[in-house]
Simulated scan of single mutants.
Amino acid sequence: LSVAQGEILGLLGENGAGKTTLMNVLFGAYAPDAGEILVQGRPVTINSSADALAAGIGMVHQHFHLAPRLSVLENLLIGIPGKSGRIDRAGGLTRLAE
């Protein structure tokens, strides 16, 4: 599986196909049994969601109660550092327009 920088990926498949397991490995909730994760061609070890975010890997969870009352833009901005650690809505709108 290869994903280019700036690309947004949606995983689709049957129940039990491994979509959630793959994302949990990429986001640091599970340790992989085999294989490697490369970011910009370099191997990375992801042990936590902080490691994943530092490597530029983000995930928007399907469950709607994880971040209540947020707009689509705010949900997309959740792992992107903003001013003082808060969601940068104006900066996000600028990036979206670009």
Rank of each mutant, 00 (worst) to 15 (best):
A4P: 05
A4R: 12
A4S: 07
G6S: 01
E7G: 07
E7W: 01
E7K: 10
L9Q: 11
L9P: 03
L12R: 12
T20F: 00
T21E: 00
L22I: 11
L22M: 06
M23T: 06
N24D: 12
V25S: 00
V25Q: 06
V25I: 13
L26I: 03
F27D: 00
F27K: 09
G28F: 06
A29N: 11
A31R: 07
A31W: 07
P32N: 00
A34K: 06
G35V: 03
L38V: 02
V39G: 04
V39E: 11
Q40S: 15
Q40E: 15
G41D: 05
G41P: 00
G41Q: 05
P43T: 10
P43L: 02
P43C: 00
P43F: 03
V44G: 01
T45M: 08
T45Y: 11
S48Q: 04
A50R: 13
D51K: 08
L53P: 08
G56Q: 04
I57K: 08
M59W: 07
H61C: 09
H61T: 06
Q62N: 04
Q62V: 04
H63P: 06
H65D: 14
H65R: 15
H65G: 11
H65C: 12
L66P: 08
P68D: 02
R69C: 15
S71F: 05
S71K: 07
V72H: 04
L73S: 08
L73C: 08
L73M: 09
L73K: 08
E74I: 03
N75H: 12
N75L: 11
N75W: 12
I78G: 04
G79V: 11
G82F: 03
S84L: 13
R89D: 11
R89E: 14
A90P: 08
G91K: 02
G92T: 11
G92I: 06
L93C: 14
L93N: 03
T94E: 13
T94A: 15
T94H: 15
R95S: 12
R95T: 13
L96T: 13
A97S: 15
A97D: 15
E98D: 12
E98F: 04
